[in-house]
Structure formats: structure tokens, C-alpha cells
């Protein structure tokens, strides 16, 4: 198992600044999304569905394997500028 910590932004902020999950060693982004859906109330499920996961350098594809030493974030729809 590996511990994955994900920073929260935007509409996820009411939940805090980050969430952590214990996931299998070969877990990928899709597994992390499933873990979020399991952990959060149904009110957040649609938002999770339209959000993406990223590390500090790029938005990750669903089959990207999660590296333990990376900093992850969940990105709801963006509204910068």
C-alpha cells in the first residue's frame, strides 16, 4: 500500500486543504478518483466527475500510475483570469 495525499482547490476547499488515501502500490489516477467518490458525500460526486487530477507539472491521464513522492491536486473546472 502507499499513502497518496491530494491538495484541494476551488469548490473542494470547504473540505479542507488536503485529503490522504491508502491505495495499492500500482494504483493509478482512476483508482484515486474512485477513492474520492467513496470518501465524499454524494453532493460532490458530479464535481469529482468533471475534475481532473494533476501533479506539479501536468494534468494526469486516468491510467497514470501515482508516484508516492509526487504532490497531487484535484482540479475542479477552472475560472482564472
Amino acid at each position: 500500500m502507499k499513502k497518496i495525499t491530494v491538495q484541494l482547490f476551488g469548490a473542494f476547499r470547504p473540505l479542507g486543504t488536503e485529503m490522504s488515501f491508502d491505495l495499492p502500490d500500482k494504483a493509478c489516477v482512476d483508482d484515486l478518483r474512485t477513492a474520492f467518490i467513496s470518501a465524499l458525500p454524494e453532493d460532490f460526486h458530479d464535481l469529482i466527475g468533471v475534475s481532473r487530477f494533476a501533479d506539479e507539472r501536468t494534468v494526469l491521464s486516468e491510467n497514470s500510475v501515482l508516484q508516492v513522492d509526487s504532490i497531487f491536486a484535484i482540479l475542479p473546472p477552472v475560472s482564472g483570469g
Partner: peptide
């Protein structure tokens, strides 16, 4: 506006606040 991870929370004069609905990012 379309691609960068930035979010706005508007604060209204009636005391309410809301996160602005934005653009969903694609995987890449």
C-alpha cells in the same frame, strides 16, 4: 482562462459567497 489551475470565489454584498463555475480541464 481555459487551461490554468485558478479558481474564483465571489463574495457578494449580501454576505453570501460562491465558487464560480468554470471550464473543465481535459486530461492533458
Amino acid at each position: 482562462k481555459n487551461r490554468s489551475p485558478v479558481w474564483k470565489q465571489e463574495h457578494y454584498t449580501d454576505g453570501d459567497s460562491e465558487w464560480v463555475q468554470g471550464h473543465a480541464l481535459c486530461q492533458h
